[in-house]
Design a protein around this nucleic acid. Sequence first.
DNA 1: CTTAAGCTTGACGCTTACGTAAGCGTTATA
DNA 2: TATAACGCTTACGTAAGCGTCAAGCTTAAG
Lengths: 134, 134
Amino acid sequence: MAQTYSITDLAQEFGVTTRTIRHYEEQGLLTPQREGMSRVFSTRDRGRLKLALRGKRLGFSLSEIRELFELSSLACEDPKQAGVFLARLEKRRVLLEQQREDIDAMLGEISFFANQCRRLLIDTGKAKNTANAI
Amino acid sequence: MAQTYSITDLAQEFGVTTRTIRHYEEQGLLTPQREGMSRVFSTRDRGRLKLALRGKRLGFSLSEIRELFELSSLACEDPKQAGVFLARLEKRRVLLEQQREDIDAMLGEISFFANQCRRLLIDTGKAKNTANAI
DNA sequence: CTTAAGCTTGACGCTTACGTAAGCGTTATA
DNA sequence: TATAACGCTTACGTAAGCGTCAAGCTTAAG
């Protein structure tokens, strides 16, 4: 019935090594079932892995990801804990907004330097070099 | 005439330790002048540091940042190298766009979970708990 | 004169996030 | 039956990015 995945299934789907997935389990980010010795991952594990990898690309530490997962579980079991989770989410939201500003600034700088480069390529030999390196 | 900065000036302005700035010099990201033994940073050094720190917040490695600085200098000296720099910039631009998508996705997930939390906080005791943990 | 503030160069230490064997069990295909 | 193919654990290795002394120079203030 419920879809399950082997460790290599997930590794291939998300382009990581099995070592990475085992490491995430060691760090408490994933809690796959066992079938004999082998790990059996549920769609929930898959969702967590997806989130974890996205978080990692955005610079979250594994321990912060674990903490968020734990807070989420706590919040669902005990509504009193929901406020704690909410606060942590809000903190991260602010950081993510700042990160987006960083990205926009960086994209602006990249297009600035790219334009300088294109001018250099076009003006080669024609006029004086007005470009300035970083 | 030209504005200069001490190592602590820059450390305080950007909220990093002097150790970090020295480390960046060791890694070839900064090349301050010397006045006796002390480092003297120009506005150009300051600009590089600012860029480097932004890059770091976005997950650039120090060696990639150094490479970009070097390519920029090469491009300005020799227009033939501008194409190389341009290509590297384009690669990073693509990654940054992807990163922005990650941020948007993550912000979406955060507001989803935040809404679940708020519902939990409001519905406490009233109805059944329909929230699902990650 | 000496004490403190700020600078320097080593150089070892630490954390994170895995990589990389080593050595072994299970299943399936040739 | 052997030889992959896939999985497991244990455990040392490693690269990046600084932290953290240690030990010493210099210059201004008390």
